[in-house]
């Protein structure tokens, strides 16, 4: 991934916007597509960069990347119904699928088996918790970056992640699914 220029001064952001777009458009699109759908991401990813171009970047709060993920998360929140529908649908679909015997990678089998319960648990999380989880998991953001993206204290990120983890584990039956597969 290209490294965006030093963006200490907000006016510079506009000067370097082409580089910012080139460096981050694909990953922002992917993040939205994984939470909503490819088609929605086609439009929404563009909206993220339009919103970003129009300003509001505060270098004192963190880097450009978490800021862009924050805008994307905010736009995704307007599609909450769609997202919940998506996780519920994935949960139902995954439950119907038999684990593939041809799948050589055990981890993938394990992942396939847990997709249903995990997707169901995601649908049941409250919005704030889900945002924190998916920014970490899909965006690969650190605690500090998630805090900057959502403009919340780092402590809140930690407590939301903790709560969400408990719910995810509960959905998996309080067991480690990988150990079960191997076991």
């Amino acid at each position: 991934m290209a490294v965006p220029p030093d963006l200490a001064d907000p006016p510079d952001l506009r000067v370097h916007f082409e580089q910012i777009f080139n460096a981050h458009f694909a990953e922002i699109h992917r993040y939205i597509a994984r939470r909503l759908s490819d088609d929605t991401a086609d439009d929404l990813a563009a909206e993220v960069f339009l919103a970003a171009y129009r300003g509001g970047y505060d270098a004192s709060r963190g880097g450009v990347r978490p800021w862009l993920f924050g805008i994307a998360t905010h736009l995704i929140s307007r599609h909450r119904r769609t997202e919940i529908r998506r996780w519920k649908a994935l949960s139902r679909t995954a439950e119907r699928l038999e684990p593939s015997h041809e799948d050589a990678a055990l981890a993938r089998v394990a992942a396939g088996e847990v997709v249903g319960p995990l997707a169901g648990a995601l649908a049941a999380l409250n919005r704030g918790d889900r945002d924190v989880v998916l920014l970490s998991v899909l965006g690969g953001l650190s605690h500090a970056e998630v805090a900057a993206a959502l403009n919340i204290p780092a402590g809140t990120v930690a407590s939301r992640l903790n709560r969400a983890r408990k719910q995810l584990r509960k959905a998996l039956g309080d067991v480690n699914p990988l150990e079960e597969t191997h076991g």
């Binding site: 994984r34 990813a45 994935l90 970490s136 998991v137």
Partner: peptide, 22 residues
Amino acid sequence: MDELTLLARALPDAPPPSAEVV
């Protein structure tokens, strides 16, 4: 492997945006 890592691997990925979309 914790729940979050598992989640990252379990959730379906998305194809990159097409040139038209970009």
